[in-house]
Amino acid sequence: MAGILIDKVAKQFGNAVALQEISFTVEDGEFVALLGPSGCGKTTLLRIIAGLEVQSSGKVMIGERDVSSLKPAQRGLAMVFQNYAVFPHMTVFENVAFGLRMKGADQARVEAKVRKAAELLHIEQYLERFPAKLSGGQRQRVAVARALAVEPAVLLMDEPLSNLDALLRLEMRAELRSVLREAGTTTIYVTHDQTEAMGLADRIAVMQGGHIVQIGAPTEVYSRPATRFVGGFVGSPPMNFVNTVAASGQARLGGLTLASPVDGPIVLGFRGEDAKLTDAAGGAPFTVRVAEPMGSHLLLTGRIGDDLARVVAPPAAQIAAGETLGLALDPARIVWIDPETGRTHPGA
């Protein structure tokens, strides 16, 4: 296997800047997710690593090799796309064997590697079938098995689960995490789905406007977002943001007083599950507009002053629209954000 170094990689399409000098590393055997909305540059970056696009500047290292000018076939990597791209006229065995045969592997090696990949993905019983006889989830397993069979130094995945229904995505996400951990393959995974990124990755690189705005462990990105954008993009429901004004090192929201890192206008960020319901006089006043039973919890949507907020309450809580409650917040679980720059205050 091999690690990856992305060194000041930039990309322009005419006058449009797609990537702005991106630099980061992926350790040998690590799983890194590139997470962001459509148009943020994540697929462009993946295609540059694969050799399907040429960077305007910067370099890509895989292991000890600078692969920036090498063709895709020379980079020692494999890709799995959103489109399964399995060959309908070939059996599952021949689909999985395709990359090996292209590399000139002998039949004994093909047999061994196909069987191993099929067992990892639990498709060994389907090797003699044609793709038309498989479900969507099974076809996706074939695509992943084909990529792993060639034992690539690096596996690149571009939204590979987005065509599956919700239950299949959940099943494949758990399976994929287990398989790649066992195979020890260095993986970069592109997704716009923060749930996939949180569940799969060792680290998440959140992208916005051609930049990586934060890279870190899923729990770090979730709990300590570097910017308001990250807090609002990662999490379901997203982080809540309340505008307030601090004075003498304190911010007051009704009966709730919190130590602020600066005086003046500031934004308080908190997760819905970190708010505890209390009496209206003793906390931040929260007026409920909608109460949605979600099974495991009750999702409350309402307002704190002029700002919309979503709060997670116990499933059996008896709360109706129009009620005004108080919210208690743990100072250790909140973030303070500069309203002008959108960045989290250091040490907050």
Score class of each variant (00 low, 15 high):
1 M>D: 11
2 A>L: 09
7 D>P: 03
7 D>M: 07
7 D>A: 13
10 A>E: 04
11 K>I: 04
11 K>C: 00
12 Q>K: 14
15 N>V: 12
18 A>K: 08
20 Q>Y: 00
23 S>M: 08
24 F>Q: 01
25 T>V: 09
25 T>S: 15
26 V>L: 07
28 D>S: 11
28 D>Y: 04
29 G>P: 13
31 F>R: 14
34 L>N: 03
36 G>K: 04
37 P>M: 12
37 P>C: 13
38 S>H: 07
38 S>G: 11
38 S>F: 09
40 C>L: 02
41 G>R: 01
41 G>W: 03
42 K>L: 05
43 T>W: 06
44 T>S: 14
48 I>M: 04
49 I>E: 06
51 G>V: 10
51 G>C: 10
52 L>W: 08
56 S>A: 06
57 S>G: 13
63 G>K: 13
67 V>H: 08
74 Q>Y: 02
75 R>W: 06
80 V>F: 10
83 N>F: 11
86 V>P: 11
89 H>P: 01
93 F>Y: 15
103 K>A: 15
103 K>T: 00
104 G>E: 07
109 R>F: 00
110 V>K: 10
111 E>K: 15
113 K>W: 02
116 K>P: 00
117 A>H: 03
117 A>I: 03
125 Q>C: 03
130 F>M: 14
132 A>M: 12
134 L>W: 00
137 G>N: 04
141 R>Q: 11
146 R>F: 12
147 A>Q: 01
150 V>R: 05
156 L>W: 08
157 M>S: 02
157 M>H: 00
157 M>G: 01
158 D>A: 06
161 L>Y: 12
162 S>Q: 10
164 L>Q: 05
166 A>R: 04
169 R>W: 05
171 E>Q: 15
171 E>L: 09
172 M>P: 10
177 R>M: 05
191 T>I: 06
196 E>L: 04
197 A>C: 06
199 G>P: 00
202 D>M: 11
205 A>M: 12
213 V>K: 07
216 G>A: 14
218 P>N: 12
219 T>S: 15
220 E>K: 13
221 V>N: 01
231 G>K: 04
232 G>K: 08
235 G>D: 03
236 S>M: 14
254 G>Y: 09
254 G>L: 09
256 L>Q: 03
258 L>E: 10
260 S>M: 05
261 P>R: 09
261 P>C: 10
262 V>H: 15
264 G>W: 10
265 P>G: 13
265 P>V: 14
265 P>S: 14
270 F>R: 02
272 G>C: 10
274 D>E: 12
276 K>Q: 15
283 G>V: 10
283 G>H: 13
284 A>C: 11
284 A>D: 05
285 P>M: 13
285 P>A: 12
287 T>G: 09
291 A>Y: 01
293 P>E: 02
298 L>I: 00
301 T>L: 07
302 G>P: 05
310 R>T: 08
314 P>H: 00
316 A>N: 11
317 A>M: 04
319 I>C: 10
323 E>T: 12
333 R>N: 14
335 V>H: 02
336 W>G: 10
338 D>R: 03
338 D>Y: 05
339 P>G: 11
340 E>Y: 02
342 G>K: 03
345 H>C: 05
345 H>G: 00
346 P>N: 08
